[in-house]
Computed example of a mutant assay.
Amino acid sequence: MRTAHIELASALAKDPSNSEAFMLRQDLTSREGARDAALSAARNCAAQHMWNCAWHNAGKALSIDSSSSEAHAMVRRSIVDSGAINLPPGPGPDMPDGP
């Protein structure tokens, strides 16, 4: 998302009245807030050793920002610490009993 901020700042510097760039910047800021909220929830779940919850929220953060290294690390940690890495392939943390 850092690159997006740089590009939007550049577009707005060239044309401060660029309404599309302004709206994109607002959308980006909103998405970052949603990503940060999901990561915060994942951290809280992890602190309580609620690994499926951490996995779910970190995955949500990844769906918003696939470049988030913290979200990637939290997903990996949640998979390992939940024991899911030792389970056969199947449904994810939101559907433990199947569809």
Rank of each mutant, 00 (worst) to 15 (best):
T3R: 03
A4L: 04
A4I: 03
A4N: 06
A4S: 10
L8F: 13
L8V: 13
A11P: 08
S17D: 03
S19V: 07
E20T: 09
E20V: 05
E20N: 02
E20W: 07
A21G: 05
A21H: 12
R25F: 08
R25D: 09
R25S: 11
Q26P: 11
D27S: 10
S30H: 14
R31G: 08
G33M: 05
G33E: 08
A34S: 10
A34K: 15
A38P: 15
L39N: 03
S40H: 09
R43I: 15
N44I: 03
N44R: 15
C45F: 15
C45D: 14
A47D: 00
H49G: 02
M50P: 03
N52F: 06
N52I: 05
N52Y: 04
C53I: 14
W55H: 13
W55P: 08
W55Q: 08
H56W: 11
H56G: 01
A58T: 15
K60Q: 13
K60I: 14
A61G: 14
S63R: 09
I64N: 14
I64R: 09
E70T: 12
E70H: 07
A71S: 01
M74P: 11
V75H: 10
R76Q: 10
R77D: 09
S78R: 02
V80F: 01
A84S: 05
N86A: 10
L87D: 08
P89R: 01
P89I: 12
P89Q: 00
G90K: 09
G90S: 07
P91Y: 02
P96L: 03
D97E: 05
